[in-house]
Design a protein around this nucleic acid. Structure first.
Lengths: 204, 204
DNA sequence: CGGAAGCTTGATATAAGTCAAGATCCGTGG
DNA sequence: CCACGGATCTTGACTTATATCAAGCTTCCG
């Protein structure tokens, strides 16, 4: 099921869970390659994704302070992560609190990111939601040097996108076509190019 | 403008800001009486509320770790808060970290609460959103012993409600009438009664 | 090469928004 | 204490964004 190694590396296949609701975690992760998300399911199969984890991100840094898993975390693509046992962080000598600080910063980032998603879902139009999501992804990948020539990975399914922006896959499809028609995005085979990131950002 | 006193108490009038975007805060607040919220405004006057602060809540506990204000905070009613200077928390002897811990718990609570709002905004129907919001308020007030006989304060305007659940004031009005018609809520003069909280919760 | 997963498209349905007017509540000043 | 005016709530008619259903198409992986 899991392939671990001496360095704390671990692999998950697409759709495999890193954490299920109700579990207690004794470790957080850092994403090395691939994408994951936190989500919640309602009775009738409606799914809403509440956080996205890209390479370089901590996955659920808040587990450091509250081990209980509220929402499940699942791999959106094949995934390679590094386990960071909580004990390892806690046991560090006080002088080296830098680890804790960096986890804390990650928690604040996610708090802030979630507020933005609330604004997006509550008050933005479909076009605006998708534009700002794509920009967010682009920016986050760029800050990890994963953008070259305005191109970056885009392994999400239109269905995944729909579950982030709170729309229907069909509608996501139509909106993406509008963005394409306006020359704001180019999508193909899991890659995305933003010819003019600023123009796209202005839509959000 | 502000009326402070020796105990660190401070009053705000409805619609007065506790914090504006871009400021740096040297204090967090604890709400003593009245309600406040964090929000964000888009160009064309669309407003989305991203957090609600009720009596007993810390207001923006994360300022302890990152002083910069991203989203403004405003009083939704006349408000009485107690200032908790950040230095006061930081300077505490290591043995008494309980203060920091409680602020941290508040941060995690708000992280978790925000995820729920994302789910609500992304995937729930108007009826479900309002039901679960009213339940949330009811539960939070109850945990502070502010519910008596299934009744609690409800000083929010239908316009405020709309800005929380991402709907139009007109539509909020209609949905509230449905809930009234079904005997699930009773609203009058800033008070709310939930004859059957469980039934209401089941809608969310 | 076959089949499932994902994408595209069209026709139609529905939830929620917009606009507009009237009714009600409520604090304020005279 | 009353009268006024603004904020809030209510209601109706109509519009629009997004969802639903359904079918065909394309891609990709085993």
């Amino acid at each position: 099921m899991l392939i671990a190694d001496g360095e704390g590396l671990q692999q998950f296949k697409r759709h495999q869970h890193l954490a299920r609701a109700g579990e207690a975690q004794d470790t957080i992760y850092r994403v090395e390659a691939g994408w994951a998300c936190r989500y919640r399911m309602l009775r009738d199969n409606r799914r809403q994704i509440t956080a996205l984890f890209l390479p370089g991100d901590y996955c659920e840094p808040h587990w450091l302070f509250s081990a209980e898993v509220h929402h499940p975390v699942v791999a959106l693509t094949d995934l390679r992560v590094r386990r960071i046992p909580l004990q390892e962080i806690r046991d560090v000598p006080v002088a080296q609190y830098e680890n804790v600080r960096s986890v804390l910063r990650a928690i604040l980032r996610s708090l802030h990111g979630q507020s933005d998603w609330i604004v997006s879902l509550g008050r933005k139009t479909a076009l605006e939601r998708l534009s700002s999501l794509l920009c967010e992804i682009f920016d986050r990948l760029r800050s990890g040097d994963q953008v070259l020539d305005n191109q970056c990975a885009m392994p999400l399914t239109q269905h995944d996108l729909a579950d982030i922006v709170g729309l229907t896959p069909v509608h996501v499809n139509r909106v993406l076509q509008v963005l394409r028609a306006r020359g704001l995005i180019e999508l193909s085979a899991r890659w995305m190019r933003l010819p003019d990131p600023e123009a796209l950002r202005k839509l959000g």
